[in-house]
């Protein structure tokens, strides 16, 4: 096939793309824009400074919105989750000790709020339908070989089609069809960039359980995208 070892290394060793937000578990870097850090704004907010809290809201609302929207699947619910989460954060802020980053703490509050909302909906008579129990996954022969082998590499075509609206719709549908527990973990990790440890804490799971769900969700989505590309 003409694959050099260098090609293989290049393909295999690229890490995940850089995130557009700092990782929640990393120490907060000093800001270069002259703006106060989260820690400084938190300290002011803890003293009752509503304007400082407003700066924190302005800074984190977009990321929290993505999380809430993807967890609930509804803009109206996301709106309510955001309101509830920020109000909770304001009320609980005096007890925040800064042992984790503020953004990480805020994520946990929002994730809990979204999960509680979903649970309430499921209990309602016209609540969400039961989630599918089976996830798509690759198939293997009795010898443990990929069967059928994925000879069609659609990853390059995926780059060309990156911005296609059809692909966007297919991805949205595939993610929405994941069982809720898997979807939540996948979104928190691969879209929002939380650490496995933060996700485990937020969702009351073990880290191995987070990893397992994440991997199975990725495998299922990969199968769906393979179907989209005709692989």
């Amino acid at each position: 096939m003409g694959w050099s070892r260098l090609d293989r290394r290049r393909v295999l060793l690229y890490g995940p793309p850089p995130l557009d937000q700092p990782h929640p578990m990393m120490p907060e870097a000093p800001r270069t824009d002259g703006e106060p850090t989260d820690r400084e704004l938190v300290e002011l907010s803890q003293k009752g400074d509503g304007a400082a809290f407003a700066r924190l809201v302005e800074r984190h609302q977009r990321q929290l919105y993505r999380l809430a929207l993807r967890m609930t699947g509804s803009e109206a619910d996301a709106n309510e989750v955001l309101q509830e989460a920020f109000l909770n954060a304001w009320q609980k802020l005096p007890a925040f000790r800064g042992e984790s980053q503020f953004s990480s703490w805020l994520y946990r509050i929002a994730a809990n709020s979204a999960l509680m909302r979903l649970r309430r909906k499921r209990r309602a008579p016209d609540g969400l339908p039961d989630q599918p129990l089976e996830l798509q996954a690759p198939k293997f022969s009795s010898e443990g070989l990929l069967d059928p082998p994925p000879y069609s590499d659609w990853s390059q075509r995926a780059d060309e089609k990156m911005m296609s609206s059809q692909l966007g719709v297919a991805i949205e549908k595939a993610v929405q069809e994941l069982p809720e527990d898997y979807r939540t973990v996948f979104l928190l990790k691969d879209v929002d960039g939380l650490s496995n440890e933060d996700i485990a804490t937020s969702l009351d799971l073990t880290v191995p359980a987070v990893k397992s769900r994440l991997h199975r969700a990725r495998l299922a989505l990969r199968e769906k995208l393979g179907d989209f590309f005709g692989a």
Binding site: R8, L145, M162, E172, L225
Partner: peptide, 25 residues
């Protein structure tokens, strides 16, 4: 080779989902 293809499409899945699901408030 099948596993190389598998790895590439596995990584592409993460990348595409992240791109598609990033939305403005």
């Amino acid at each position: 080779m099948p596993c190389i293809t598998f790895v590439r499409t596995y990584k592409a899945t993460r990348r595409l989902c992240r791109t598609a699901l990033a939305k403005e408030m």
